[in-house]
Design a protein around this nucleic acid. Structure first.
Lengths: 116, 116
DNA sequence: TAGTAATATAGTTATGTAGTTATATCAATG
DNA sequence: CATTGATATAACTACATAACTATATTACTA
């Protein structure tokens, strides 16, 4: 695992692709769907039941996620199963969670140093 | 460094916070600004010159980035300097870049296996 | 082949936000 | 204290998109 850190050389196109990926993950419902899928493959119906919105809405977001290669689609008879295709998204979530946690902790410590 | 993988237990609020962070990074101009700042602290004027848009637009995005704790703000006389406050964003970019690269490579290999 | 179930698409509305121009704030300087 | 320079805010426009309802597609089944 080597560090790259050569972002200075990112072309505008590459930058747009990265932004696109972030924007894809920047919707609570999509994150929610991905989170449910982390336990394993699910049908559209199951997903619709798990997250609380309409089935067409779920289908729309699933389509986006598939278009960008984040989930895979498998049809079996009448029902369609989606699954995580790119597990790196969970790595991303972990990093963000860590960052947010650190942020809240530092705010907490500031409060402690004032009140404690 | 331990693996968490307990996303099942994420509350809707936490999920919204994570999505918010992704959305913040999901704008090419903001990513561009952050990329420029990776070299070190810069004034608003310098940033405006580096990325190509109006100064008010830059100020607006800088404000968002600061609000969410991604950059810090330091005023010296008339000019204001911004700097990266949360380097984890570059880690995020690295992960995304790796994922995208893998995706293109696999498509490339598919093409090769068809045409080659 | 008619009917039903599962998923996808179309069309619409409402909301968010990126970018622009004009203006305000604020600090230095004459 | 008027002016200039640096940054921030306000008001606006244009566009993207999330969610909804209605409908279409597709596969199974009686």
């Amino acid at each position: 695992m080597k560090k790259t850190n050569d972002h200075q050389k990112m072309t505008p196109e590459a930058l747009a692709l990265v932004a696109e990926r972030f924007r894809l993950l920047g919707e609570p419902l999509r994150l929610n769907i991905l989170q449910k899928l982390q336990a394993g493959e699910m049908s559209v119906g199951e997903i619709t039941e798990a997250v609380e919105t309409s089935q067409p809405n779920v289908s729309k977001h699933l389509k986006m996620l598939q278009t960008y290669g984040v989930v895979s689609r498998r049809q079996e008879g009448n029902t369609v199963y989606y699954a995580i295709a790119d597990p790196s998204i969970f790595e991303l979530c972990d990093v963000v969670c860590g960052s947010l946690q650190g942020r809240f902790e530092s705010q907490y410590n500031k409060m402690r140093s004032v009140f404690g």
